[in-house]
Amino acid sequence: MAKRQTILITGCSADGIGAVLALTLAKQQHRIFATARDTSKIPFELRSLPNVSVIALDVSSKESVAEAAEAVEEAGHCLDVLVNNAGFGYTMPILDVDIDKAQNLYNANVWGVVRTVQAFGPQLIKSKGRVVNMSSVGSVVNTPWIGTYASSKAAINSISETLRLELSPFGVSVVTILLGTVATPFHVNEPIPVLPETSYYAKILKTITKWAKNELGPKGGSTQELVNSIVPDIVASNRNGIVWRGSYSGIIRFVTGWLPVSILDMMMSQDQGLDELAKV
């Protein structure tokens, strides 16, 4: 068994990856700081464990992140691992993207990660700890309608790998987990696409909405199965760099490395409604 570590996880609302991960690690006797914007959404089973502390943390707020970092330090536990899991999606054709909503997404998905790393960096350097950033296989394949979300995760990939080099002199490792599909309520908090009547994609709004609601496309494995696969990436001493985890991640890793772009485009465009548009 890996040594007991102190781990902070963002985005621990019920049924999501963060909550299941926090509960799994807590049951392994690690010291857990479970965080969420609204702590009432953190499941009672997790909140009630003696080795779990609950902290309100909104990664979009510099003040909230700073207060959380101060709370962890005042608790007297040396932080070993920071898991950046919080974030949200946005399904919309690029031509119809609401820039204000896109900025909010980037504020959480990208700059939220940077904020937490900056705030908890001194504690991680002191412990020679680890940063774990949750990304997505969507960041490496061109998939219609999720370009804004996917680009935010692509930014995380680049930031994480650069951070890995910059923190290496201090003994801090950085793991970027490219997640495949997983059965979580992630899409529940995602706004339903609303297109202007003049949108070139109005004709296939129903199809786009089904993708946004996760009613189309491959179904993921269970959250617990995914969590079990990433626990070593969080607590094992030899993990660093990019790893691929979850349903279809292995396939995506292969096809992006070996298949021609034309075949990859055909695969990612299937059932997206593009053929219907081309007939107009």
Rank of each mutant, 00 (worst) to 15 (best):
L57M: 06
T10V: 02
P50Q: 12
S61F: 05
S64K: 02
F33L: 05
T35K: 01
C12P: 01
V54Q: 07
V52I: 09
N51I: 05
E45C: 10
L49E: 03
G11R: 04
R37K: 15
D38M: 08
G18M: 00
I17L: 12
F33W: 02
S48H: 08
V65Y: 03
L25N: 08
I7V: 13
D15L: 13
V65I: 10
T24W: 06
Q29G: 01
I17F: 08
G16I: 12
T39I: 15
F44Y: 12
V59P: 00
T6Y: 02
F44H: 14
A26I: 05
L21T: 11
K41Q: 15
F44T: 15
R37P: 06
R37Q: 13
T6C: 12
S40H: 14
T24M: 09
A36W: 01
A34T: 10
P50V: 09
F33H: 03
R31K: 15
V65R: 07
V65P: 01
V52G: 03
A14D: 15
A34M: 09
C12H: 00
T6A: 13
I55N: 02
S53K: 02
T10R: 00
A36M: 02
Q28E: 15
S60D: 07
I55Q: 06
E67K: 15
S13V: 04
P50R: 09
S53P: 00
K62S: 14
E45V: 13
G11F: 01
I7M: 08
I17A: 04
A19Y: 06
I55R: 06
R47I: 03
L25A: 09
L8M: 11
A56H: 06
L49D: 02
E45R: 12
G11A: 05
K62M: 10
V54S: 09
D15M: 13
K62N: 12
E63S: 14
I32N: 12
V20Q: 14
S40K: 14
L46E: 09
L21V: 02
T35Q: 00
A66G: 04
C12L: 05
I17K: 06
S40E: 13
G16N: 14
K27R: 15
A26G: 10
V65T: 10
L23I: 06
A19C: 08
A22L: 10
V65S: 09
H30G: 10
G16K: 13
A56N: 07
G16C: 12
S64N: 03
I9N: 00
P50S: 13
Q28A: 14
Q28N: 12
D38G: 08
S13K: 07
A19E: 11
L21M: 12
T24H: 14
S60E: 08
V54N: 11
Q5K: 15
P43T: 05
S40V: 10
I9R: 00
A36C: 05
S13F: 03
F44R: 14
T35S: 10
V65W: 05
S64W: 06
E67R: 15
D15K: 15
K27N: 15
I42V: 12
A36Y: 04
V54H: 08
S53H: 03
S13H: 04
L49S: 07
A56R: 11
A22F: 02
T10F: 00
Q29C: 06
A34K: 09
N51E: 04
A36G: 03
E63T: 13
V54W: 09
A19N: 10
S53C: 01
V59C: 00
S13E: 06
G11S: 07
G16T: 12
G11I: 04
I9W: 00
A34R: 11
C12K: 01
R4A: 11
L8S: 03
S64R: 03
